[in-house]
Measured scan of single mutants.
Amino acid sequence: CHSECLGNCSQPDDPTKCVACRNFYLDGRCVETCPPPYYHFQDWRCVNFSFCQDLHHKCKNSRRQGCHQYVIHNNKCIPECPSGYTMNSSNLLCTPCLGPCPKVCHLLEGEKTIDSVTSAQELRGCTVINGSLIINIRGGNNLAAELEANLGLIEEISGYLKIRRSYALVSLSFFRKLRLIRGETLEIGNYSFYALDNQNLRQLWDWSKHNLTITQGKLFFHYNPKLCLSEIHKMEEVSGTKGRQERNDIALKTNGDQASCENELLKFSYIRTSFDKILLRWEPYWPPDFRDLLGFMLFYKEAPYQNVTEFDGQDACGSNSWTVVDIDPPLRSNDPKSQNHPGWLMRGLKPWTQYAIFVKTLVTFSDERRTYGAKSDIIYVQTDATNPSVPLDPISVSNSSSQIILKWKPPSDPNGNITHYLVFWERQAEDSELFELDYCLKGLKLPSRTWSPPFESEDSQKHNQSEYEDSAGECCSCPKTDSQILKELEESSFRKTFEDYLHNVVFVPRKT
């Protein structure tokens, strides 16, 4: 048989008469490798580009789960590009990614509803959504962080984005990388972005840091009482949809009607710091009717980097990364020049730590249904340095008659930039024990000054392991946590139920 035959053949030295091919099969003959313009397919066939392209389009058009959109890589027609490569849609070739590779997620039936953290986790790592997304989240724990972890990498949506009755959302900033909504599939009414009845939605994105392009379709905003109209108009300008909307697409009466839409800028007039305090004062603000001013709200939190936005980490279910302080308005003076500047002394802060701070007014709604208010920009203030805590785990070892090696770990709280350490030492008198000992005694162990690591005695271990207080009263049991108490109650309830079950099964009433 021919060298490319495997198993047997019907005619000697003829690659077209093989029972099976050793390498690849091409047009009725066995070959060692697939010549151009053919590609290896499933490690035994040679196919042309049209064959591989037909497989790709067949799966793409069917949208069946589990099928493969075949691509070409290293002269092979394979189910998908290997790690580190992405497909070129024009020629199906796998090309190296520039940075992290995109991950295209194809949605069944063309859309997916995100109504819980669990459903959001199914899209973790996706960068391109081939379909439409509907966000409908009523509640949950730590929602802002969970949504950002699972949806934060999405850069492109081919269909539309719909935010509907998501009472738990305060902001859409968890879509931190969303840059493009194509609108290839539109919501009824030709809408590519749809926001309806979101009672706590206050911000779409921080438009000073976020760009969003909507290729096709219109915007729809109705019944978002805490979303200011200025935020919607800003989205029109940034996304390129200005002029597409009709009169009733953006409701003037049901958007922002319960919001404090600040239209003035508060400026800080005085800032002073110490290692654990920050004193702030800002310019006074009074609405047209000074009785509408209820006070100020001061927001602050630790910020290692200057990239904080107002609604980071917030949701309507209680999660809030900001510390909020309510401040009463100052006494009002008739003389504008003698107006008191409101302020606040922030206490209990960490030394040498940068804080993000902003302040906003708290006002009631005027009778004319106009909203007044003022808010400052987010500023960054760093507390002063102070003395560091003591170095940890000092170790001293003498390696000769004239040297001592000293080692330690950095302090747990540096409280500033540590530039150097101060080492103090003092000579001590020799131990009298060394002169009084009889060095001729056998088995004498000389006193040693070398360091030995501390260890816990058996008594201390027994005390720590004991669940009861000892007789001397030195140790006591740790208080039980809520989960331990709940577990004990469940076990007790189970024992009672099981005992009742045994009584009912074992003891049967005697027939009379």
Rank of each mutant, 00 (worst) to 15 (best):
K103I: 14
V104Y: 06
V104A: 09
C105R: 01
H106S: 09
H106Y: 12
L107S: 11
L107T: 10
L108D: 00
G110C: 05
G110V: 05
G110K: 04
K112G: 02
T113P: 05
T113A: 07
I114W: 01
I114C: 03
S116L: 04
S116C: 15
S119G: 12
A120L: 07
Q121L: 11
E122G: 07
G125K: 13
G125F: 06
C126E: 00
T127I: 05
V128R: 15
I129K: 00
N130C: 03
G131N: 01
S132V: 02
S132Y: 01
L133E: 00
I135E: 00
N136S: 07
N136M: 04
I137S: 05
G139S: 15
N141P: 13
L143R: 13
L143N: 03
A144S: 15
L147C: 03
E148G: 05
E148Q: 13
N150R: 08
N150Y: 14
L153P: 06
I154Y: 01
E155M: 04
E156G: 03
G159P: 00
L161V: 08
L161C: 05
K162S: 14
S166W: 01
A168M: 02
A168I: 05
L169C: 15
L169A: 09
L169P: 08
S171L: 01
L172S: 02
K177Q: 07
L178Q: 00
R179C: 13
E184D: 15
T185C: 03
L186N: 07
L186W: 06
E187M: 13
I188F: 10
I188P: 04
I188T: 13
G189F: 09
N190E: 07
N190I: 15
Y191K: 05
Y191A: 11
Y191C: 13
A195Q: 02
A195F: 11
N198I: 02
N198K: 00
Q203T: 12
Q203G: 01
L204H: 01
L204C: 12
D206Y: 04
K209W: 07
H210L: 15
L212S: 02
L212T: 07
T213G: 13
I214T: 09
T215K: 04
Q216M: 14
Q216K: 01
G217L: 01
K218M: 11
L219M: 10
F220M: 15
F221W: 01
F221Y: 09
F221K: 01
F221C: 15
P225V: 10
K226W: 15
L227Q: 02
C228L: 04
C228N: 02
C228M: 02
E231Y: 01
E231D: 15
E236G: 07
E236W: 15
S239I: 12
S239R: 04
T241F: 09
T241P: 07
G243E: 11
E246T: 09
E246D: 11
E246I: 04
R247G: 14
R247W: 13
N248V: 09
N248Y: 12
D249P: 09
D249F: 07
D249L: 15
I250V: 05
A251R: 06
D257Q: 11
D257L: 07
A259Y: 04
C261N: 02
E262T: 11
E262M: 04
N263Q: 11
N263I: 09
E264C: 05
L265R: 14
L266G: 01
L266P: 00
K267G: 04
K267R: 09
S269T: 07
R272L: 11
T273D: 01
S274D: 14
D276A: 11
D276R: 01
K277M: 10
L279E: 15
L280S: 01
L280I: 07
E283K: 07
E283P: 04
Y285P: 02
Y285S: 13
W286M: 06
W286S: 09
P287I: 08
P288L: 07
P288I: 12
P288E: 12
P288S: 10
D289T: 04
F290N: 14
F290S: 11
F290T: 05
L293N: 08
L294G: 14
L294N: 12
G295P: 11
M297L: 14
M297Q: 15
M297S: 15
L298T: 02
L298C: 02
F299S: 02
Y300A: 03
Y300K: 01
E302F: 04
A303V: 14
A303L: 04
P304D: 13
P304M: 11
P304S: 06
Y305C: 07
Y305Q: 03
N307S: 11
N307Q: 01
N307P: 09
F311H: 13
F311Y: 15
D312G: 10
G313H: 13
G313D: 02
D315P: 09
C317G: 08
C317P: 10
C317T: 03
S319Y: 13
S321T: 13
S321N: 14
W322V: 08
W322T: 02
W322G: 02
W322A: 07
T323P: 01
V324P: 03
P329Y: 03
P330K: 08
P330R: 09
P330Q: 11
P330M: 05
L331N: 14
S333E: 14
N334Y: 09
D335H: 12
D335I: 11
K337F: 12
S338W: 07
S338I: 10
Q339D: 15
Q339V: 09
Q339R: 09
N340E: 15
W344M: 02
W344Q: 10
M346R: 01
R347W: 10
G348L: 05
L349Y: 00
L349E: 00
K350H: 13
W352R: 02
W352V: 05
T353N: 03
Q354E: 08
F358L: 04
F358Y: 10
V359H: 01
T361M: 09
T361D: 00
L362Y: 14
L362G: 03
V363G: 14
T364L: 01
F365V: 15
D367R: 08
E368W: 15
E368A: 14
R369S: 07
R369Y: 14
R370D: 06
R370W: 13
T371A: 10
T371S: 09
T371R: 07
G373N: 04
G373S: 04
S376N: 01
S376R: 00
D377Q: 05
I378T: 11
I379V: 12
Q382C: 03
T386R: 06
T386V: 06
P388T: 14
S389C: 04
V390L: 07
I395Q: 06
I395R: 15
S396M: 04
V397A: 07
S398P: 14
S398K: 01
S400R: 11
S400P: 04
S401N: 15
S401T: 10
S402L: 10
S402I: 02
Q403V: 03
I404M: 13
I404G: 00
I405S: 13
I405W: 07
I405M: 02
L406M: 07
L406V: 14
